[in-house]
Each structure stands twice: as structure tokens, then as C-alpha cells.
Design a protein around this nucleic acid. Structure first.
Lengths: 135, 135
DNA sequence: TGTACGGATTCCACCGGCGGGAAGGTCAAG
DNA sequence: CTTGACCTTCCCGCCGGTGGAATCCGTACA
């Protein structure tokens, strides 16, 4: 199967699939003419990768998950640990963004947003003494 | 004032400050010996940039905010729009991460995390038919 | 037979926002 | 005179690809 078809079936772009081969995530065979020749297991792998990436796992984590997937002697604890680490990272990121949203939301609410130059947003940026929470 | 001192005062690294000069955010003078020579307004600008970056604004947005800051004829509406766009971006990102956390959290909860190879996480990655929400 | 076209190949460059580190210049203290 | 703390420029690398150029391959059609 050629790369275009695989792209359609996996949901990844041909570019991305070539990149994944480049970094060793898949190893498709080659035809006489030099074209990549993917078999079903390659497609399956690529779908796995697409799904894992869509859940926010890094390439490195995808590599680990893939090798766990292919290791039928694996312990589910190992998989779970990878996922939990990612979950904690997501939680940290959400907390960080929530903080930003709070601060920024307060500033935006304070700004009149009219033709005048006075602007609490710029004032905060220019002198971030406090957090804007003070009474 | 030399770059090390400015780094301390602004909270940015010397590397970052050089980079900001490179992309035209600051234009410090130079001493006879070639060293950058920052004045107070440079430091002020850099603190402004550090604060804006810490709120998650992109470099491009920082550039806009800085030019609005320096334009005393500005309309606060323009500043507010930049901030609101960023706010919406943050909200989208949070929503996305919340979705990931939901899916991933369910999968992690389902996984026994023991020595056995059975693993709902890998099963989902291998065949993402549904979202895991179906009864 | 020519040729037009869709798809494939390679390679190089670029994105943001820096960080690391090499190779060297400058200056004050000891 | 040397040490050490600075400073300079320069290029490479990170992540996870994307875009584009130049070049093949194979088929369909005139």
C-alpha cells in the first residue's frame, strides 16, 4: 500500500508518516521503484500513533507506548504510569492556564476598551507590582 | 548598564535579552568595547516584555502591546482586543486539555496497573472506535 | 509516440523562543 | 602576569512537524 492511501487510512499526513519513518517509529518496506510499501500492521501502528498523539502524548511517550503495546509480556502498570505522568502534566498545564486566565480576565474586565488611552492592561504590564487581587 | 545587570533587574536571561535585540524588540546602545549599554527605559521595556510573556502573549503580540504602550494616542480598545484574543485562545486550550484529561482519566481509572498485560489504555489506542463514554 | 497529470521520492529550510556551548575579547583584582 | 568574571559573536539543537523545490514513476489520453 502506498503512502497516500496510508495517510487516508491513518489520518496522518504523508509528510508526517515520512517523518515517523525518519525517526524510526515505522519501517515500511520498499517497492522496486523506491516507493514505500506499507502493510496492514504498519497502518495499524500509524493509527495507534495518531490516537496517542491526539491524546497529547509526546513522540517519546508514543514510542514507549508502542513498544509496550507490542510487548505481550508487558505489565499494565507500566502503561498506566506513562499515562498518569501525562495526566499530571495536563493537570499542571490546566492549572497554569487557569491562573493566566484569571489574571488576564481581571485585567480585560477592568479595561474600558474605548477610544481613550488609559488602559489597566498596559499599566499592569508596565508595573506588575501586585496580582490585581488587592482591594 | 551591562547585560548581566539588566538580566537580574528584568528577570530575563542574558540570552533572551540578546535574542530580543536580535528580533528588534530592544535597541540598546553600545560601549566603546562593543558591550551593550542599556538605559533605564530599556530595562523598563524588558520588564514589560517579561511580564507580557509570562502572561502567555506571543512575541508578536508583545511587539504589538509594546508599540501600543509607547503610543500615547492609543485606544484602549486596541489593547483590549489583543488581550481578549489571547484570552479566547487560553479558553480554547483549557477546553482542549479538559477534554484530554477526561478521556485519559477514564482510561487510567479503568487500567488495573498490575503485572498483567491486559490494559484498556493500550486497547483504546489500538482501536479508538468510541470515546469510552458509551454504556 | 508524446505529453499531461497525479502521486511518489529526496532534501533543505522554517516555525517559536530560546538554551548550550565554543572561541575569543575586556577589565579589575591579586 | 594570570586568574576569573564578565562580555561578544556564532552556530547547533530542541519539538513535531509543515512547506516547497527538484526530480521520478506510471498511467491515460490524443
Amino acid at each position: 500500500m502506498r503512502i497516500g492511501r496510508v495517510a487516508d487510512k491513518s489520518g496522518l499526513s504523508a509528510k508526517t508518516i515520512r517523518y515517523y519513518e525518519h525517526i524510526g517509529l515505522v519501517r515500511p518496506a520498499r517497492d522496486m521503484n523506491g516507493y514505500r510499501d506499507f502493510v496492514e500492521t504498519d497502518v495499524h501502528k500509524l493509527r495507534f500513533l495518531a490516537r496517542a498523539r491526539s491524546l497529547g502524548f509526546s513522540i517519546k511517550e508514543c514510542r514507549m507506548l508502542l513498544s509496550l503495546y507490542e510487548d505481550h509480556e508487558r505489565a499494565s502498570a507500566d502503561v498506566k504510569e506513562v499515562a498518569q505522568r501525562h495526566l499530571r502534566r495536563i493537570d499542571r498545564k490546566i492549572a497554569e492556564l487557569d491562573g493566566l486566565r484569571g489574571t488576564l480576565g481581571r485585567l480585560v474586565a477592568l479595561c474600558h476598551g474605548d477610544e481613550r488611552p488609559e488602559c489597566p492592561i498596559l499599566e499592569d504590564l508596565a508595573s506588575p507590582e501586585a496580582d490585581g487581587d488587592a482591594p
